[in-house]
């Protein structure tokens, strides 16, 4: 019972911060711990090249994970993100090759992703389907369509556009000498900040948490539950569109059958270690941001330890299981 009469809130003491750190921000502790481990295992860890590489490698998963954070906070799930990236990326390269304009390609990918997400959202709200089922159908459909048009093979960026288009993924703003800040790092950080503001400081963010926490209460407070759900899927689709652009730029080709496969696992794992409740209602963008980096660091550490990359799926699975078990354990202590 603090501050019953006081007007202003002044209880941010060291004890309060510690309590919050352990209960709500425990992902920061794991983040720091992982950095220490990574620093010990990999002697080059703290070099700029390595750090910026981690950001470059996590940017695609990072963008999608921002959307996934919203979806999971709203109490839903989207397992179609990997296939969406492949579908959007494949067609995106066709658009790029035809128009020769990167801008048109980016716009196309964004709009296309937004539409796919909207379809997911409509199926779930207006069609009354569980999100797992609706996005599973989308996952299968998107992958099969792009396989059909690409005959299973890759869509490749044409020779003349190759050089300029690749700049997006490899380029950066020069700082001094050879050191430069990669564009992808900037994009990832800016997007994360935007999402953080949306989730914390806007009506949309508050509504997303409200819907994920208790749909009925949200409806009875005047929240348009269906609209919020459609929006979170549409935004995730949009992020898949942007991720598809990055994918195409990094690989300069999108292989219809295999591109971005397993992304759904990786993004969900990143959101889970970031502390977002799988049941919805609770979670932080900062957590997801760190979760994405942690995920990349874990696979880096394992690569350094000579663990086969074929085991990536097993690692994502294990991370999801451990993170959610820990959440459950914390909740049980909290709510008895």
């Amino acid at each position: 019972m603090l501050n019953i009469k006081g007007e202003k809130y002044k209880d941010i003491t060291a004890k309060y911060i510690f309590k919050k750190l352990v209960s709500e921000y425990s992902f920061i502790l794991s983040f720091v711990l992982l950095i220490i481990i990574a620093g010990i295992v990999n002697k080059n860890f703290f070099t700029w090249t390595n750090l910026s590489n981690i950001f470059i490698q996590s940017s695609m998963i990072g963008l999608i994970a921002m959307g996934m954070s919203m979806v999971i906070s709203a109490g839903e799930i989207d397992i179609s993100v990997g296939s969406q990236v492949a579908l959007i990326g494949g067609f995106g390269i066709l658009v790029l090759n035809i128009t020769g304009s990167t801008v048109i390609m980016i716009l196309f990918c964004a709009v296309f992703g937004f539409l796919i997400g909207t379809i997911n959202g409509l199926l779930i709200t207006k069609g009354g389907m569980p999100s797992m089922i609706a996005t599973m159908a989308m996952m299968g459909a998107a992958r099969s369509i792009i396989n059909h048009f690409g005959s299973g093979g890759p869509f490749t960026v044409s020779r003349e556009l190759f050089g300029t288009f690749r700049l997006l993924a490899v380029g950066g703003i020069p700082l001094w000498g050879n050191v430069k800040i990669p564009y992808l790092m900037i994009i990832f950080i800016i997007v994360a900040i935007i999402f953080d503001v949306i989730m914390k400081q806007t009506k949309l963010g508050k509504h997303i948490y409200a819907v994920g926490s208790n749909e009925t209460s949200a409806r009875l407070s005047g929240v348009n539950v269906d609209l919020i759900k459609i929006l979170v899927f549409a935004i995730t689709g949009l992020m898949c569109g942007l991720a598809a652009v990055i994918y195409a730029s990094r690989m300069t080709a999108v292989a219809a059958a295999s591109a971005a496969s397993g992304y759904e696992m990786e993004t969900i794992a990143a959101v889970a270690i970031g502390g977002t409740a799988m049941s919805g209602g609770r979670g932080k963008i900062l957590g997801t941001f760190m979760g994405v980096l942690m995920f990349k660091m874990i696979s880096n550490i394992l690569t350094a330890a000579d663990v086969s990359t074929f085991l990536n799926g097993a690692i994502s699975g294990a991370i999801i299981v451990i993170a959610v078990l820990m959440q459950n354990y914390q909740n049980r202590r909290k709510y008895g």
């Binding site: 948490y209 409200a210 994920g212 926490s213 208790n214 009925t216 209460s217 949200a218 009875l220 409740a277 919805g280 209602g281 609770r282």
Partner: peptide
């Protein structure tokens, strides 16, 4: 509990 509050918030 079911219709009034958001217990995560």
């Amino acid at each position: 509990k079911e219709r009034g509050i958001h217990n995560d918030l």
